[in-house]
Every structure is written in structure tokens, then in C-alpha cells.
Amino acid sequence: MPHARKTERGLLSLGGLLLLPRFEHSSGPWPQIVGYALSLLLTLAATLLVVHHLIAPLYLPAVILFLAVLQAGIQLGLFMHLREGVGPSWQIVALVLAGIVALGIVIFSIWIMAFKSGVS
């Protein structure tokens, strides 16, 4: 079954950077300090945007949600060593799927529960 093996290796190299196992041997707490500073900064920015009405209310939710996603990325990347593991990092696949399902549940639920689609 050389074809099957090729497909699988292809899949792995596709995600190449993401799926290779690796460990972080940092010499100091710098990643943590940077992560902490960034998360404080982003929280502060979002709060200021809302409190001081710096952006039109129409776009504000999207902007602060974007800042929240950035913060989540910082936690995952700098604190949670997302890529660590022995063997393929299946946790990344799982988290991506979880994210898609979660987003789908929220967006579809809002759409369905609005009871306003189309001509009703």
C-alpha cells in the first residue's frame, strides 16, 4: 500500500511545521513575561475602546472579539506549548475541530433562534 503511506506522509508534511513534534527548552521566563505583558495590554486596549467609545458601536464587538482571539492565541502559543508531544500533535487537529464546532454552534444558534430568516 505505498499509496496510502504517501498520503499519510503528505498529510503530515502538509501541516509540516504544525505537526512535527517538538519541545520548548527556553532558558528563561521570557516567553511568559512577554505573554503576560501582551495579554495585559490587549485587555487594557479592549476595555479602553469600550469605555471611551473610540470606535463606532457597529464595529466595536468585532474589534474586541478579534483582540480576544489574539489573546487566546498568545495563551496557546506562549503558555500552553501547544505543539509539544511525542508523535504527531493531534491536539492541534482536535482544537481546530473544536473551534470550528464551537463557532458553528454559536453562529447557527443565533441565526436559528432569531426566528427571522426569510419570510416568516
Binding site: V101, G104, F108, W111, I112, M113, A114, F115, K116, S117, G118, V119, S120
Partner: peptide, 19 residues
């Protein structure tokens, strides 16, 4: 994951949702 409304089409979420 993307089909669950077919259990309650008659709840009346609307034409677009049901379609």
C-alpha cells in the same frame, strides 16, 4: 454537525434556515 434543525423544521425558524 450541520443538519440538526431538520429535527424541528416546524418550529418555524424561517425559510432560509430551513432551506
Amino acid at each position: 454537525y450541520g443538519v440538526w434543525v431538520h429535527h424541528f423544521f416546524t418550529m418555524g425558524a424561517g425559510a432560509a434556515v430551513n432551506a
